[in-house]
Simulated assay, not measured.
Amino acid sequence: MSYQKPENLIFVPLSWTLPQAEYGGYTSCSGRGRGLTDQNLVEGTSLVLTDRHVCLRSKSTRMSAIDDKKPWWQEKTFEFSGHTLKMAMFKESSLGVSAYVWEPGVELCQYFHNEKVNFAGKKILELGSGTGIVGILAVLLGGDVTLTDRPRVLKQIEYNVAANIPSHSRHRAKVGTLVWGDDQFNYSTDFEVILGSDIVYSPIHFPALVKTLLHFCSVNTVIYLSSNLNARMGAENFHKEVLPKLFNCELVHSNKGNCIYKVTKECTDNAD
Rank of each mutant, 00 (worst) to 15 (best):
K245D: 00
V252M: 04
F78Y: 12
L243T: 06
K70N: 14
L18C: 09
D149I: 04
L195W: 00
V153Q: 06
G130A: 08
V134H: 03
T17F: 08
L213D: 00
S227F: 06
H253N: 12
E158I: 05
F112V: 04
N186Q: 15
R232C: 05
A21W: 00
Y187V: 09
S202K: 07
L108A: 02
K5D: 08
T148H: 04
L9R: 15
G35H: 03
C109D: 01
V193C: 00
C249A: 09
D144S: 03
I165L: 05
L36M: 13
L36F: 15
Y201M: 02
Y3A: 10
E43H: 12
V219Q: 03
T146Y: 06
V263W: 08
D269P: 08
G130P: 00
L9Q: 15
V42W: 13
K262P: 01
A88C: 07
H53C: 15
E266Y: 05
T37I: 15
N230C: 14
S226F: 08
C55T: 04
T84E: 14
A138W: 00
S197Y: 00
V219T: 11
V222D: 03
F206N: 05
E126K: 06
Y111L: 13
Y187H: 06
F90Q: 05
E107F: 07
L147P: 04
K211E: 07
H171S: 15
Q4R: 13
K174H: 14
D198S: 05
V175N: 00
R170E: 12
A120C: 11
E92M: 02
T50V: 14
S30A: 15
K86R: 15
D269I: 14
Y23R: 15
K5S: 12
N114F: 12
I124V: 10
S60R: 13
I10P: 07
D269F: 10
G196M: 00
A120S: 15
G143Q: 06
K91D: 09
S98P: 04
Y187I: 12
F90A: 05
P207M: 06
T45S: 11
G135P: 04
A231S: 09
H53V: 11
P207D: 04
I136S: 08
K116H: 10
K240T: 14
G181E: 13
D38P: 10
W72P: 03
V54P: 05
V54F: 04
G234Q: 04
D269S: 15
L229I: 12
